[in-house]
Amino acid sequence: MVHPYAILGFLAAVLPLVATPGASLTLLVQHVTDNGRRQALPVILGTATGLYIHATFAIAGLSALVMHSSQAFTAVKLIGAAYLVGLGIWTWRSATASARAPARRHPPVRSDSVYTQALLANVLNPKAASIYLTLVPQFIEADHSFDGQILTLATAHALLMTFWLLAWTVIIRRASRSLQKPRFKRTAARITAVVFVALGIRTAAT
């Protein structure tokens, strides 16, 4: 069992990382802007699932293998970078197609597709894995079960991420009138695309 003070310390340490704009927030802005606040749920669930996968990998020692093998780490990093860049290109092309046919109504993106995007964006992020290899060990006790402690901290991490993304969902929906304008949607989509590509390049370069 993790001591409550250890959980609070972990949350304080991970908060700056949660608050740093990344793929999850970018996906949230994109899908909530386009299809409403209901799309926040699959983004949150996909992100939370990714955190539990990283926690499971850490328990199994797989993340340690990736982090200590330069080839494996580079492979994961490049796959994640390629995914983000590809997602950015797809988003830009979708915005361009929308600009050419503004009167056409596009069907909403399926929730399972949004969930998969959020899941992959998190799982393919080696920096998320590094949290469970470098930060989590600082808040667990050697004389207790690692499994339970890591899963407890992963749950706290997922809850913090959920509250953060829900807060952004409220902010986005309060500006709903401006967000629903076609011109704003296209501009937001293109900004989102640039952010995805930038995140991919940053991931590959670090």
Score class of each variant (00 low, 15 high):
Leu62Trp: 11
Asp147Met: 07
Ala198His: 06
Gln138Ala: 10
Val14Ser: 08
Val170Arg: 08
His54Gly: 00
Leu51Tyr: 10
Ala58Asp: 02
Ala103Ile: 01
Leu165Tyr: 00
Ala82Gln: 01
Met67Asp: 09
Ala188Asn: 06
Ala13Leu: 11
Val197Met: 14
Ala128Cys: 12
Asp143Val: 05
His106Leu: 13
Thr49Trp: 03
Arg177Ile: 02
Ala64Thr: 14
Gly9Trp: 05
Thr26Ile: 10
Leu11Arg: 06
Leu160Gly: 03
Leu41Val: 15
Ala81Glu: 04
Leu17Gly: 10
Ala72Met: 13
Val114Gly: 01
Gly9Cys: 02
Thr20Trp: 13
Ser63Phe: 04
Ala12Asp: 04
Val14Asp: 00
Ala128Asn: 13
Leu45Gly: 05
Ala64Met: 15
Ala188Ser: 07
Asp112Gly: 08
Thr47Glu: 09
Arg186Phe: 06
Arg186Val: 03
Trp164His: 14
Ser94Ile: 01
Arg173Val: 13
Leu8Glu: 11
Thr26His: 12
Gln30Ile: 09
Leu28Thr: 09
Ile171Phe: 11
Tyr132Arg: 01
Leu41Phe: 14
Leu133Ser: 12
Val136Cys: 13
Ile7Pro: 01
Ala128Asp: 10
His157Val: 11
Ala158Glu: 08
Asn125Gln: 08
Thr134Gln: 09
Ile140Arg: 03
His144Met: 14
Ser178His: 10
Glu141Thr: 10
Ala205Ile: 13
Ala13Ile: 08
Pro182Asp: 02
Ala101Asn: 15
Gly9Asn: 07
Ala95Met: 07
Thr155Pro: 08
Ala58Leu: 02
Ser94Tyr: 04
Ile191Val: 15
Arg37Val: 11
Leu15Gln: 12
Ala142Leu: 13
Thr49Arg: 04
Arg93Met: 11
Thr152Met: 14
Leu135Trp: 03
Ser111Thr: 08
Ala198Asn: 07
Pro126Arg: 02
Ile150Gly: 00
Gly36His: 06
His31Asp: 01
Arg93Asp: 09
Met1Lys: 14
Ser130Trp: 15
Pro42Trp: 06
Met67Cys: 03
Ile150Met: 09
Arg190Phe: 03
Ala158Gly: 07
Pro182Cys: 04
Ser98Phe: 10
Gly86Thr: 04
Thr192Ala: 10
Ala118His: 00
Gly46Val: 06
Phe163His: 04
Arg186Glu: 07
Ala128Pro: 05
Val18Arg: 09
Asp147Cys: 14
Val18Ala: 11
Leu133Asn: 10
Tyr5Leu: 12
Thr96Val: 15
Thr187Val: 14
Gln138Gly: 07
Thr33Ile: 07
Pro137Glu: 06
Arg104Ala: 15
Ala40Leu: 11
Phe57Asn: 04
Thr152Cys: 14
Val2Pro: 01
Thr203Asn: 09
Asn125Phe: 00
Ala121Leu: 00
Val170Tyr: 14
Ser63Asn: 12
Gly86Asp: 07
Tyr52Ser: 04
Val66Asn: 03
Gly80Lys: 00
Lys181Cys: 09
Asn125Val: 05
Leu62Glu: 06
Leu62Pro: 06
Ser70Val: 11
Asn125Thr: 07
Gly9Glu: 06
Val32Asn: 00
Ala82Glu: 01
Ser69His: 09
Leu124Gly: 02
Ala48Asp: 03
